[in-house]
Design a protein around this nucleic acid. Structure first.
Lengths: 231, 231
DNA sequence: GTCTCTATCTCGGAC
DNA sequence: GTCCGAGGTAGAGAC
């Protein structure tokens, strides 16, 4: 990995055109050829970048660049899309290279998958007598998170989200439309189960006859850990 | 911005839990306290990170860490969510700090950059006798889009926007305040050049003695293409 | 390869 | 502030 601190301007042309005026920034040039341009603030997203696979080259300076005070010009071109990043360096402040080796990678645990698993284990939270048919119930347009039968034997399709928004309602609507065409399954009710739901999403859901179930993650996790049953 | 190359392990607890086993990585510690952990590959997304606003501290080592060979332990805690990142450093390979200043930010969408270039080429649109001193005229708080001299030799600072709003007026005001402190430049007039300007921005600009220039992008582009000069 | 969905999404704009 | 929609979305998983 090569780290360069430089006063530079950057131009991107691809899906859109974008320009970074002259300023001092970090240029992170990774081993796979990719380039990240970071300022001293903002979030983890670089100001500009080029993703691998891409080719990196140092170009000849033309008269305009020389006149403008450019001391080096980089060009990074994406190998598939042709998107290009041009970096004009006016002053090189720091330049170092480091051998980092291959990273073992991030070990994650616990997100939406957790919520899904917990609800499957505590399917009674949906309503009395609810029974899980299967998780990730397959349909032609993708799997429904949970397929459940209520106490009367009628089907319920459940979509689990951490935060439910309009998209979640639309997604569940599509599933329900498809599932209700199957005479073996119909009628299928829909339940949107989430830790939180956006007001407009709730309105839309209610309007479409989709029920909303708020999930208390911590409580569900407590049940899972067995803690509440200690006494 | 502080750049550290170190053999380290990283733990995140927050929305989820995540762990990075010991390996050599780049730790980018930004001026706003945020921390990015990058490997020498992958995309622009760090392996792990903490977004601002957050607090950074170096912690006392406990016996376990010392026994494991930890030489330094960092803790970065998000000020609102409480999400926390713990970095255990086993070996410090590189450590450097750099003053980058405030970044002028990305100009997306190409149109604004286009406008800037076109106005530089057709600087006479500003007023009769106007002459371009330079584009991206540098100041301590970032570059002014265009520095121009009027027919009497007085300076004009021009800020170019696609849509000018209050922020644009504030930005130009800051530049003018700074530039007018320089006896070599003063007095510096200010012109806000835009395709459109919000009513409140226009009012504020006029109130501050900043002139407003409406730009006709299509007309300027037409001149640029050379079409009108063919006959 | 394709499609589909998630994300510690990030980021901007509108209200 | 909150909510909503777009992103050069990226990345993972299923098929």
């Amino acid at each position: 990995m090569r780290l360069v601190i430089a006063r530079c301007s950057v131009d991107y042309t691809g899906r859109l055109n974008a320009h970074l005026p002259e300023a001092t920034r970090l240029l992170m040039h990774k081993g796979d050829g990719s380039l990240l341009v970071h300022s001293d603030g903002g979030s983890y997203k670089p100001l500009n970048w080029m993703s691998p696979p891409c080719s990196f080259s140092v170009e000849e300076l033309d008269d305009d660049d020389t006149a403008a005070g450019v001391v080096e010009r980089w060009r990074v071109v994406h190998k598939k899309s042709g998107d290009a990043l041009t970096v004009r360096i006016f002053e090189l402040i720091h330049d170092s290279a480091h051998d980092l080796g291959v990273d073992p990678g991030l070990q994650k645990d616990g997100v939406e998958a957790d919520l899904q698993r917990l609800l499957a284990e505590q399917i009674g939270l949906v309503e009395d007598g609810a029974q899980l048919v299967r998780r990730e119930y397959p349909t032609a347009i993708g799997p429904v998170d949970h397929m459940v039968r209520d106490i009367n034997g009628n089907h319920i399709a459940i979509e689990v989200k951490r935060k439910a928004n309009i998209d979640a309602v639309e997604q569940l609507t599509r599933y329900l439309e498809l599932l209700n065409r199957d005479p073996v399954l119909a009628p299928v009710r829909g339940i949107l189960a989430a830790q939180s739901i956006a007001p407009q999403a709730r309105t839309l859901a209610v309007d479409r006859g989709i029920e909303v179930l708020l999930l208390d993650y911590d409580a569900m996790k407590g049940v899972d850990s067995g803690a509440p049953t200690l006494f």
